[in-house]
């Protein structure tokens, strides 16, 4: 997506955001359209967010999860997708543990595909809602210092945020232990900080990523306690940032690990605004891939 594409989605989302504030939160825009939520991985907020978005636009939504799909019976992803295609959906929203699964699907079915998070690759709608939230507070991303702290290597949110923030001119700083840094991270157009304080110092935005407790098979950190001591975002750490810093988190939060509760609930936190904007961004994406103008995007829009 170009910077213009990103801003087009967000401007569209802004126009839809108001719908969620109405007493009757429904418009007929996508009446008669069929949307399938095809979730191969557990997800609460993203799936719900897409479903709420679809219903507010009057589309018909259907949910399939890994446990109810034929994947458990040994059917391949492509076969499952082709069967869904035979039911003529307009959009398939996919969440999958394999990076690249949405691209595989797009090559094999006619419906528009929206990536709701693939492996450790990208989570484009999250990236867009993060941009929308920052824009609401800062007006522009141009020249902002944005710190992303945590397990960058395994975070698809970071994957999309880095691309989006860079396109809009922000200075992205990544911080976390080297075990959390992807290979050649310094070539992503970002600054990699060994000391988290260097990333947070004078930052306009600080985003903490969720530490995935289930990853402990591959020993990346000694303990959550030690992680929190050195890399957790707490009020003391935040004093290094700009006074008007906003604090973000893609959720769900491990309170007291990557972020202290007083920060998560504090006045700089925009975490719940991210969730609200998520619905608006997803309404915009659904609108734009069906009937609305098309964006020229391989990763997210198509």
């Amino acid at each position: 997506m170009t910077a213009d594409d990103i801003l087009h989605v967000i401007n569209t989302a802004r126009s839809f955001k108001e719908i969620s504030a109405r007493p009757i939160k429904k418009v007929p825009t996508l009446r008669g359209k069929t949307i399938i939520n095809f979730f191969f991985e557990p997800s609460t907020r993203t799936r719900l967010s897409f479903e709420v978005a679809a219903k507010r636009m009057s589309a018909d939504t259907f949910n399939i999860s890994a446990s109810t799909s034929s994947a458990t019976k040994g059917e391949t992803l492509i076969d499952t997708a082709r069967n869904l295609q035979a039911m003529a959906p307009d959009v398939i929203i996919i969440r999958h543990s394999s990076s690249g699964a949405p691209q595989l699907l797009a090559k094999n079915v006619d419906a528009a595909i929206i990536n709701a998070g693939d492996g450790t690759h990208e989570h484009p709608s999250q990236g867009l809602l993060d941009i929308m939230t920052i824009l609401e507070h800062k007006g522009s991303l141009e020249g902002l210092k944005i710190a992303i702290v945590g397990d960058i290597a395994h975070s698809r949110v970071a994957g999309s945020d880095i691309i989006g923030f860079n396109r809009l001119g922000a200075n992205v700083h990544l911080a976390g232990p080297a075990t959390f840094m992807p290979a050649d991270a310094d070539q992503l157009g970002v600054t990699v900080c060994e000391d988290v304080r260097d990333a947070v110092r004078d930052a306009d935005v600080v985003m903490a990523l969720r530490i995935q407790k289930e990853r402990q098979k591959d020993p990346l950190i000694p303990s959550l306690r030690e992680y929190s001591t050195f890399y957790g975002i707490n009020n003391k750490m935040l004093q290094l940032a700009k006074d008007d810093v906003v604090v973000m988190h893609p959720g769900p939060i491990n309170r007291g690990v990557e972020m202290s509760p007083d920060v998560a609930d504090g006045k700089r936190s925009v975490i719940l605004e991210q969730v609200t904007n998520g619905v608006a961004v997803r309404m915009a994406l659904l609108y734009l891939v069906m009937g609305g103008e098309k964006t020229d995007d391989e990763q997210g829009g198509r």
Partner: peptide, 15 residues
């Protein structure tokens, strides 16, 4: 292969 391309694709690398 472990490296920038693997990072961009979100695929686990082999050093």
């Amino acid at each position: 292969n472990e490296g920038l391309t693997a990072t961009r694709l979100g695929l686990r690398g082999i050093p």
